[in-house]
């Protein structure tokens, strides 16, 4: 082991944060870039399924909160891209990897938002799962990642509440609204459970990530925690989670749950989900159509700089 590596491992062991200019193993850097940029892309692509409903939000209050929420996601993507840049990769390069299909993002956003209740279900389940994942990341060993996560978690707390409030309102509404509510839960439940990633024994990056204290809990641990929480919360809605096998296990002090369809998960991750193509196309289109705007602002800044240097 080279001396730098010993210092690094020692810092990890003592819970001392690693900062961008500190020495770090190439694999640590690689793993971070992969995980952080994937996280950033998820925030950005995640704007699309919800942004979809901004123009159709059913009240002015809902419209304002939805815009604020989707805008937060843009902010979170930005914090994460910035944190990733400290590792020596520009935002442009990271985004290119998304657009070329090289980088992945959370597969949950490849499912369509069909009704207004989906906005509630995303807030409750998808943001709920995300928060479960993100809270431990506030202690990630890489300083910029941990700091970005602290900010994100602070802001995210309203997201889940607004989602649950949407569902709660629907669950107390007309028959059609109740039906809309249950239908959305049915469609979003399993994809949300899959958000924690493949089971631990099939997750190649899991172990390394835990060893370096980027992640603190395994996929399966977090998944179980999420299921336990949701199984209780769904009762407040008077709705059901679409899993016949779900029941309380007194010995384990956890909820048992049914089999997850990992074939579906792999298909969606590999680009064959219901909306993969649309999502990526929308991102590429926004980027391409924004090129002349970015160029104009850069050119203008160049001119002004030039003229102020000549004064």
């Amino acid at each position: 082991m080279i001396p730098e590596e010993k210092i690094f491992e020692d810092k990890i062991a003592r819970e001392v944060r690693i900062e961008p200019r500190d020495w770090m193993p190439a694999d640590y850097r690689k793993l971070l870039i992969r995980q952080m940029s994937q996280h950033a892309h998820s925030e950005i692509v995640g704007m699309l399924p919800e942004g979809n409903w901004i123009t159709r939000a059913p009240s002015l209050r809902r419209k304002a909160t939805l815009i604020a929420k989707v805008q937060d996601e843009a902010g979170h993507g930005l914090y994460l891209y910035s944190a990733t840049e400290t590792l020596g990769i520009t935002r442009e390069e990271t985004i290119d990897q998304l657009h070329s299909g090289k980088a992945k993002y959370s597969s949950i956003f490849n499912y369509p938002t069909l009704t207004w209740a989906d906005i509630g279900a995303i807030g409750w389940l998808v943001d709920g799962a995300a928060i479960m994942n993100q809270v431990p990341l506030c202690r990630a060993s890489f300083g910029p990642y941990a700091r970005a996560m602290v900010r994100i978690c602070k802001e995210e707390s309203f997201h889940q509440r607004q989602g649950f409030e949407i569902l709660l309102t629907l669950s107390r509404g007309s028959e059609a609204q109740k039906h809309m509510c249950q239908d959305a839960i049915n469609r979003w439940w399993w994809p949300s459970v899959m958000m924690f990633g493949p089971p631990d024994d099939a997750s190649p990056h899991n172990q390394k990530s835990m060893q370096w204290k980027i992640k603190r809990f395994s996929n399966d641990e977090l998944r179980q925690k999420f299921i336990d929480v949701c199984a209780e919360q769904v009762r407040v809605l008077g709705m059901k989670l679409p899993d016949d096998k779900m029941k309380w296990n007194e010995d384990e002090q956890h909820y048992d749950f049914g089999e997850i369809n990992w074939t579906e998960f792999r298909e969606v991750v590999n680009g064959n989900g219901p909306c993969n193509k649309e999502r990526l196309e929308a991102r590429k289109k926004a980027h391409a159509e924004g090129a002349w705007v970015r160029e104009a602002a850069a050119a203008y800044a160049g001119k002004k700089n030039h003229s102020s240097n000549n004064q």
Binding site: I44, I54, G75
Partner: peptide, 19 residues
């Protein structure tokens, strides 16, 4: 303006127009 949310020319300006 909110139709731009998620489709702006760069993240920073997406956020600005959403504001």
């Amino acid at each position: 303006n909110s139709e731009w949310t998620g489709h702006g020319p760069i993240l920073e300006q997406d956020i600005a127009l959403s504001n």
